[in-house]
């Protein structure tokens, strides 16, 4: 007789929305603002069902005015509320970056810790569905570079829920990046990764803790969101060739879980870092630098990195697929590493 495992399958967006709903239920200071987060439920479903359940006061559709709603969230957070605001696409940061970089990230420092900003800025990142140069970026490093913000990017429905709960309860400002193609929306390509087991009861997943999603002894692959999923798929294919890759889901850019990465590299002696952000000055460079600083003599091969070349994301589907690192590129890079 086999044990029956109850799996409660949710898409990424439903997992996020459930986290927000449960926190709104628990804490009346939590409220949501953004463009189309009301009846529409967020164009990537992050606020699905919230407006119907909590009403227009606590789930607010806003004018197209990113500076205003992020700035207003800062003001409301300074007065003890716990706002969640949605920047529809991370690519729109340019119209509101002052409020993010100069205020959300700095008020706690400039007030000597007196003013806390317990707010979450959730934003859709990533490409893969022909949305072109201004709607497909991840910009992980742009946000992670600035001191004063936590920056997280969960990749599974389980983590989307658990990390959203943690982000809302965190007294620091948190940038919560969710990947569009991992939301499991009907109008996008259906990916297996975008559906997963999510317990109904509330739980937290810590911010700042990477996750070893696949164990292996030959090589370490660090990925985040889609590149982590690609890495797992590549690792499964490599296993057939007898190569056992360990895959780390970074989950959080700030704080960065160095220890998990270093421990893995000390075991496998080889490192590949894969990113869906631009190559130069990015996450791959940061992790490569940390490993070079702290575990250089554990390495048996030079570190390899895969990332988007320093050009905007093309609209053309074949061109986009060609420049964003995928399963094939990861597999080839690992083969090159282990041959070294």
């Amino acid at each position: 007789m086999s044990t029956v495992v109850h799996r409660r399958l949710l898409t990424g967006n439903k997992a996020m929305a459930e986290a927000i709903a449960q926190e709104m239920e628990r804490d009346e200071n939590v409220f949501v603002m953004g463009e189309d987060v009301g009846a529409y439920g967020g164009i990537f479903g992050s606020a699905e069902g919230l407006h119907q359940r909590f009403g227009a006061e606590r789930v607010r559709d806003t004018p197209i005015s990113e500076t205003a709603f992020i700035g207003a969230a800062i003001g409301a957070a300074a007065e003890g509320m716990r706002p969640i605001v949605e920047l529809m696409f991370v690519d729109f940061f340019g119209v509101c970056m002052d409020q993010i970089y100069n205020h959300m990230a700095k008020i706690h420092y400039m007030s000597g810790g007196n003013v806390k900003l317990p707010m979450v800025l959730m934003t859709a990142v990533g490409g893969g569905y022909s949305d072109a140069a201004q709607h497909s970026q991840t910009l992980y490093a742009t946000f992670a570079h600035m001191p004063g913000l936590k920056v997280v990017a969960p990749a599974t429905p389980y983590d989307l829920k658990g990390m959203m709960v943690s982000a809302i309860r965190d007294d620091n400002p948190v940038i919560f990046m969710f990947h569009k193609t991992l939301q499991g929306l009907g109008w996008m390509d259906q990916l297996d990764y975008s559906v997963g087991h999510v317990p109904e009861e509330e739980y937290t997943v810590p911010l700042g803790k990477a996750n070893v999603v696949r164990e292996g002894k030959d090589v370490t692959i660090v990925g985040i969101q889609m590149t982590m999923h690609h890495a797992v798929e590549a690792a499964n294919q490599l296993a057939v060739e007898g190569i056992e890759a360990e895959v780390i889901d970074l989950r959080s850019l700030v704080p960065l879980d160095k220890e998990t990465i270093l421990n893995s590299v000390r075991k496998t002696h080889r490192l590949l870092v894969v990113d869906e952000d631009y190559r130069s000055y990015g996450m791959t460079a940061e992790i490569a630098a940390i490993v070079a600083e702290e575990a250089l003599y554990d390495l048996e091969a030079p570190i390899l990195r895969l990332a988007v070349p320093d050009v905007p994301i093309p609209y053309s589907r074949p061109l986009e697929q060609a420049i964003v690192p995928g399963v094939k590129e990861i597999r080839e890079a690992v083969e090159q590493l282990v041959r070294h």
């Binding site: 700035g71 207003a72 969230a73 409301a76 300074a78 007065e79 205020h103």
Partner: peptide
Amino acid sequence: IIGAQIVQATGVGMAFKLK
């Protein structure tokens, strides 16, 4: 930062109203 306080003041007012 010129102007940044204007949107934040709206948010503080919003918090008072919500509470």
